[in-house]
Design a protein around this nucleic acid. Structure first.
Length: 478
RNA sequence: GGCGGCAUCGCCAAGUGGUAAGGCAGAGGUCUGCAAAACCUCCAUCUCCGGUUCGAAUCCGGAUGCCGCCUCCA
């Protein structure tokens, strides 16, 4: 088993070897809690979820840190507009974030450090950079990082300061900074900040954005850790700046592997509020979409590939998911204990293909392909009478693994036969189970109108009747 | 202007030089009182032009088209 990842640093697909055997320390850039997160954000968090789940599947003990940015221009502006304290404002969105990740079945990270709770660590780090001469105080009182002092600046993103960074920003240069591309480590308080400030050794003010990730990752993961992830837009300047700050301060390599996920577009266009194609997770749920179908869409495209989110794709995902759920139910209802070699062969191949695909830079499409091939083969064998409960058992084990890695399958069985739910048939009210027998009675009497009336009534109330060779079965429509 | 990415069936999407996975949709079929659901079967030579190679969707050069980053952004 060899796991490989495309490392943004260097741009190559390389073998993954953790710093300490059996342990992976990873830092994942989290949300700025100023609004409900949109599906693009969750694409990134689901990619990170898949990453940690795969590492766990491969036996690693994972320590994941995801920061919560709860102090910046947007959170301050939002809280001031409402006239409420910053923490009251951000708490709402922190809570919403955790509700959302539950909805999507995202595993919890080990730590969710908030920027406002790590001011001390950030101040210490900035002090260190001042002492070492990498930082200076500008005329505006803010403390800046001097990128000229860090010759390797640009090594992650491949950008060269002279060529474009300085050029692109020269217009905005307001002379407080020595170099146009220098970035703020600490921002001096000004009126727009209202009562958001900390009195520290650096003065009265608040941290710059980039410093929190350096300070908090070091605190929870050490000065050098294994994996750092984020959206591709973070490569520059955010992650570039993190490297500059961290490595200048410690003199050690910062993150060893950098993984970035591509953006999501909606119906082929960049998601934006003005185009009307901007969706939060909550909106999609309110529209009645299955959270797992959303998860399926977000996880289903390789993380380095731009994902085109479409409603057509969402219903395709729902259909695929239903097929998997159906497959699981089929396995659960298998009987007898004769063992068939064909089944174990198909399963062994699926498992190998699945694992090899995932090992190769989390190739989820290949992995899904392996699973569906197994679905088809197993169904076929079932049709040929070659799938017993004994054969089904190891496949169910595999589905369990599949679920551990992707989080896509439900635990409960979908077919219900003994429900006490009350349904309406015309003007009558009866138990759903009674309605089912009523229909059977009508069918026996060849009263098709009555039978179909009951069938339609049940369907409109969320119950589907399936006439199987073993008799009718009720299924809840999801 | 600088840096980077992408172009594979109607839609989505794998493909690590050796002869095109998979999903959805569609068509046919099994089952059914009819249906639904389910299941089975069928369904592409990879944008174009050159080159390297015994062999290229895969490597190189060029063309065309699309996209991202360089400013807060997952």
């Amino acid at each position: 088993m060899t796991i490989r990842f495309k490392n943004t640093f260097g741009g190559q697909i390389e073998e993954f070897v953790s710093q300490d055997p059996g342990i992976v320390r990873m830092y994942t850039c989290g949300p700025t809690v100023y609004d409900y997160a949109h599906i693009g954000n969750y694409r990134a968090y689901i990619f990170e979820d898949l990453l940690r789940r795969w590492l766990e599947y491969r036996g690693y003990e994972v320590t994941q840190v995801m920061n919560l940015t709860d102090v910046d221009d947007k959170t301050i502006r939002g809280s001031r507009e409402l006239g409420i304290p910053l923490n009251e404002y951000t708490d709402k969105y922190k809570k919403a974030f955790f509700e959302d990740i539950n909805t999507l079945g995202i595993e919890r990270a080990e730590h969710y450090p908030a920027a406002t709770e790590h001011i001390y660590e950030m101040v210490e780090l900035v002090k260190k950079l001042l002492e070492k001469g990498y930082a200076y105080k500008g005329d505006d009182g803010c403390i800046y990082y001097s990128i000229d002092k860090f010759p390797e600046y640009g090594k992650l993103s491949g950008k060269r300061i002279d060529k474009n960074i300085a050029g692109a920003r020269i217009i905005h240069d307001e002379y407080e900074k020595e170099q146009a591309a220098d970035f703020a480590l600490w921002k001096e308080w000004d009126e727009k900040d209202g009562d958001v400030f900390w009195e520290t050794e650096l003065g009265k003010g608040r941290p710059g954005w980039h410093i929190e990730c350096s300070a908090m990752s070091m605190k929870y993961l050490g000065e050098t850790f294994d994996i750092h992830t984020g959206g591709e837009d973070n490569i520059f300047p955010h992650h570039e700046n993190e490297i500059a700050q961290s490595e200048a301060a410690t003199g050690k390599p910062f993150a060893r592997y950098w993984l970035h996920c591509a953006h999501l577009v909606v119906e082929g266009k960049k998601m934006s509020k003005s185009l009307g194609n901007y969706y939060t997770l909550r909106q999609l749920i309110e529209m009645g979409h299955d959270p797992m179908a959303i998860r399926y869409v977000l996880i289903g495209t390789h993380y380095r590939q731009q994902l085109n989110f479409t409603f057509e794709g969402l219903s395709a995902a729902k259909a695929s998911l239903d097929r998997l759920r159906e497959f699981k139910d089929m396995l659960l209802s298998a009987t007898e204990d004769t063992v068939h070699m064909e089944v174990s062969d198909a399963l062994a191949k699926a498992k190998t293909d699945f694992e090899n695909s995932m090992d190769y830079d989390l190739n989820i499409s290949g992995a899904m392909g392996a699973l569906f091939e197994l679905v088809r083969n197993a169904n076929k064998l079932r049709d040929e009478g070659k799938l017993s409960a004994a054969d089904a058992k190891p496949i169910l084990e595999f589905l369990k693994d599949f679920h551990a890695v992707t989080g896509l399958l439900p635990k409960e069985k979908k077919v219900h036969t003994d429900e006490d739910v009350i349904v309406r048939i015309g003007d009558e009210k009866m138990r759903v189970e009674a309605a089912l027998s009523e229909r059977q009675k009508a069918r026996n009497e060849k009263d098709w109108a009555r039978a179909d009336e009951i069938r339609d009534a049940l369907l409109s109330q969320g119950w589907e009747i399936r006439d199987t060779p073993e008799g009718p079965v009720l299924k809840k429509v999801t």
